[in-house]
Design a protein around this nucleic acid. Structure first.
Length: 364
DNA sequence: CATTCGTGGAT
DNA sequence: TATCCAAGAAT
């Protein structure tokens, strides 16, 4: 393996500069306070296509509730989905849960040691397998995520990238650069560089520890985006007293069918046609991938909503007491609406993983 | 190999 | 009511 831009001596210096920069600039993130493979795994799955800032609080809550592989395997799927509510890509939670059960039922309740074995778990692709193996097990395998791909593309320049255009070639290039004596740290440093310095639109080259090796000094071509489409949707907020004379309120929720392509099995407010003669209690925009939903929520009394037509039309519906809403696997939109309308309380902040005991091998 | 799967925050 | 896109994986 050789690159036009970097000699082997450059490579040594690249590693030194990058790792020394990382020692000083690494963000203090909860999953960096452990080497428990299970916790690294959870963090890596949560981080798939999801920003660090979004993940931090969710990771702490998840680890507090499921501190070990066994505790996760023993949980019901809907509780796992509840903790995932609002994070999106719910298939990740289902696959994580099913992989945990598989490991406990058939592999002695511990994670495989090598990236090759990890790769066979549901929900674990090339990136995640390499991340867990290098960070938790010190395996000398390079990760290639969006950050690393961008950093490599810029550092090595077009010619090298054309040669390394395929994922396998990109991984080979990353592997050539990888520091085999500290693979986990090196991988995290590459990602950290991409996430905080070698930014997609405004690379901070002046702050870059490896700018002396960079062929392009920040150049990057962005792929054309797909067209955003807009859709109108309407939901009903239907409330009733939870019990006779109680101050507690119950809300009517509907469950999305298991056959739905998006968010199957998750709960949301019942969808309705737009009422003709009433004003919405809430108007918000909610973006899902390439669709902008312009959402209006209408407050309806039970007798205005419930009727033979609606009951038949819904896959499944249930009254949920407001204090129990945080135990339901809601779609992100439903959470947003219920919190915005003050029906549902904001989740409490959970102390960070540092205060939590726990290593590989902990039982429950 | 292209598509699909969510969401929130930065710009 | 703009646009981008993030520590990807499955199909």
């Amino acid at each position: 393996m050789e690159t036009a831009a970097l000699t082997e001596q450059d490579r040594e210096e690249f590693r030194r500069q990058l790792l020394s920069w990382f020692r000083l600039n690494a963000r203090d993130l909860p999953w960096r306070q452990t080497r428990d493979p299970y916790r690294i795994w959870v963090s890596e799955v949560m981080l798939q296509q999801t920003r660090v800032a979004t993940v931090i609080a969710r990771y702490n809550q998840f680890i507090q509730r499921f501190p070990s592989l066994v505790s996760l395997a023993l949980a019901r799927e809907d509780e796992v989905l509840t903790l995932w509510s609002g994070l999106g890509y719910y298939r990740r939670a289902r696959l994580l849960h099913s992989a945990a059960q598989l490991l406990v039922n058939e592999h002695g309740g511990s994670l495989p040691h090598t990236s090759q074995e990890l790769r066979r778990l549901p929900g674990v692709g090339d990136y995640t397998a390499a991340a867990i193996a290098s960070i938790a097990r010190n395996e000398a395998v390079a990760v290639v995520d969006g950050n690393v791909e961008r950093v490599l593309t810029r550092v090595l320049g077009k010619a090298a990238v054309r040669r390394a255009g395929l994922p396998a070639q990109l991984k080979e290039t990353a592997g050539w650069l990888l520091d085999p004596t500290a693979p986990g740290t090196f991988n995290q440093a590459m990602m950290e560089l991409g996430a905080t310095v070698c930014l997609p639109h405004a690379p901070q080259c002046a702050d870059c520890p490896v700018r002396q090796f960079c062929a392009t000094k920040g150049e990057h071509v962005v792929a054309p985006r797909k067209q955003i489409v807009s859709r109108q949707t309407h939901y009903a907020l239907v409330k009733k007293p939870a019990e006779e004379g109680s101050k507690r309120v119950a809300v009517l929720l509907a469950q999305r069918p298991d056959s739905a392509s998006q968010m199957p099995g998750m709960w949301e407010l019942p969808a309705i046609a737009a009422p003709e003669s009433s004003e919405p209690v809430l108007r918000i925009r909610h973006a899902i991938t390439n669709t902008n939903f312009y959402v209006e929520v209408f407050s309806l009394k039970p007798e205005e909503f419930l009727g033979p037509r609606h009951e038949k039309a819904m896959e499944r519906h249930d009254w949920v007491v407001d204090s129990k809403l945080s135990e339901v696997p809601l779609t992100g939109l439903a959470r947003k609406i219920l919190m915005r309308l003050d029906v549902m309380a904001k989740p409490r902040e959970v102390r960070s993983g540092k205060a939590l005991p726990g290593r590989e091998g902990d039982f429950l």
